[in-house]
Amino acid sequence: MELVMAILIGVLFTAAVYLILSRSLLKIIIGTGLLSHGAHLLILTMGGLGGLAPPVIAEGVTDFADPLPQALILTAIVISFGVTAFMLVMAYRAYAVHKTDDMNQMKGNNEHD
């Protein structure tokens, strides 16, 4: 099971890297979304996919899933959610001000002396 997950996460990272290297700002943000999905799945996988029951204390259950990675993921999800929301709004503002979403035209290399 871990192997399948590892391959899936690898595909997610590949897609994320490809999208982040593209020109369009929206594609880049979609790429960061995929990147954080990959990272969160990786925490889950690296914590081990064993354990029969969900980590809730109940009568007669002894084999729990590891609760720690789930807590870590929950934290990481809200953080990346906040950052993504901020980034989307900023992309919107940048589009309104710069009139482009092409990263090549946002270089600004010709301003220095």
Partner: peptide, 22 residues
């Protein structure tokens, strides 16, 4: 935009590294 993008990628890398270490 560039600053945030670089830091988002490095934060994802940080999470990945912590996962490996764990």
């Amino acid at each position: 935009i560039k600053y945030i993008l670089v830091n988002v990628v490095s934060s994802a890398l940080f999470v990945i590294t912590v996962a490996y270490l764990y």
